[in-house]
Design a protein around this nucleic acid. Structure first.
Lengths: 221, 221
DNA sequence: GCTACATTAAGCAGATATACCTAAAATCAG
DNA sequence: CTGATTTTAGGTATATCTGCTTAATGTAGC
């Protein structure tokens, strides 16, 4: 069975050593490279072809975010596991957008790190609990509000249908054809939608629908 | 020290028993209620006031998704931890939107479940690795494509400005005023945008801009 | 039964947007 | 310098959308 090849990128030598120490005790893991900065990490990634790259955010020169982007761009097969001291939102989302498969804080114990490496090697993703919380918060539209705005509280079923089609770029006539309605009916529905949403154009309504999550960008071809 | 009060909701009694068994071994946890369906879970949540509700998706009558929504709506302080056999996208995102703080698959071992309960009790979030992967995939805009389409490859700076304002729901005249341009110029820019993007309406262009990430929903007031 | 709302549809006026055309000044690469 | 692109803008015409109003039907709640 081939071992999991691992690249460690961290500007502190002692952290690299410690990490290597932990991983070395696993029979199925092999640290094939160490980098002290982002540029080195990118270069080494191309040479040693690791399966998993464990990358720190704070590194001199090219930082972990940029390194992750470039590694994922050039070698998409490499799974990037972020191991950082920071859980600032800015870093978190930049990293996830850059294509990181995992994000752990340095408070993890060795066992968890080892597990995480196996997870990302297997194509899964790992998020540290406090990171997961941040990510999940992106899914709750109105956290403070006691009543979560649901489209059904504002719009009727039919209106939502119309709005969905509008969001896909259809004209009123197209929507009418699609739903087997009169053009005037579609216009009426949209008029009601505008009033209920307190907007004055189809574009505003569409953006609203997306922003509130009534329609997902994934739904749109 | 007060124990963590836990409510278990699952339609299979044996699963409830097993879960209770695992949690009972923890000195700081107390199973204060069991529900066999969603309606019961919602009702009990109001009576026993648990700190954490462990909820299964597949339940007769009111399912786990609806139960989660209602529990979070009525008692936001209760942390909902989903423990399910399914990892279908549909369920996952519905649950997360409903306000679940954690999502584990039934393949977890007892230790992990116990840890997860403590995490969500502490206000953190826990995602099973395969769930985390799905969630993270929402953050990578163009997964397959090697070259991420940048707006600058397609659209000029000015065109992007116009498109951004259009995305915020402004009319052509509004955009013209905002950028101190003639209405005709804005029309011209939009015409060029439509041609370049191969679309035929402002709405399509706007959705495209959002889908490609040229404009973020967060940018929009 | 009455009230409220959803769904359907229409008339009419006016606002907006889009298509297709030309064109001048500015900028930039070859 | 020359050609391409960008940015600006206008002409003309049509298409589409939006506002305001009315109204018939059906359904749900009091």
């Amino acid at each position: 069975m081939p071992k999991i090849k691992i690249l460690i990128a961290d500007d502190h030598a002692v952290v690299r050593d410690g990490t290597r120490q932990i991983l070395a005790q696993e029979p199925d893991m092999d640290v094939v490279g160490e980098a002290a900065d982002g540029a080195d990490a990118i270069r080494l990634a191309g040479i040693v072809k690791p399966d998993v790259a464990i990358i720190d955010i704070a590194m001199p020169g090219v930082d972990g975010i940029e390194a992750t982007k470039q590694i994922k761009a050039k070698y998409p097969a490499i799974a990037v596991l972020i191991l950082s001291a920071y859980d600032d939102d800015q870093f978190v989302f930049s990293l996830l957008e850059a294509g990181a498969a995992g994000y752990l804080l340095k408070s993890v114990r060795g066992r968890e790190l080892v597990d995480a490496v196996r997870q990302v090697y297997g194509g899964e993703s790992v998020l540290h609990p406090s990171i997961a919380r941040k990510v999940l918060n992106r899914f709750v539209p109105a956290p403070g509000k006691s009543s979560v705005k649901k489209p059904t509280d504002m719009l009727s079923e039919r209106e939502i249908e119309v709005l969905k089609l509008a969001t896909r770029g259809l004209s009123n006539q197209d929507i009418a054809d699609e739903l087997c309605l009169s053009l005037r009916t579609v216009q009426a529905h949209l008029g009601h939608i505008f009033n209920k949403l307190q907007v004055s154009s189809r574009t505003e309504a569409v953006v609203r629908a997306l922003k509130e999550g009534w329609v997902t960008l994934e739904d749109i071809p």
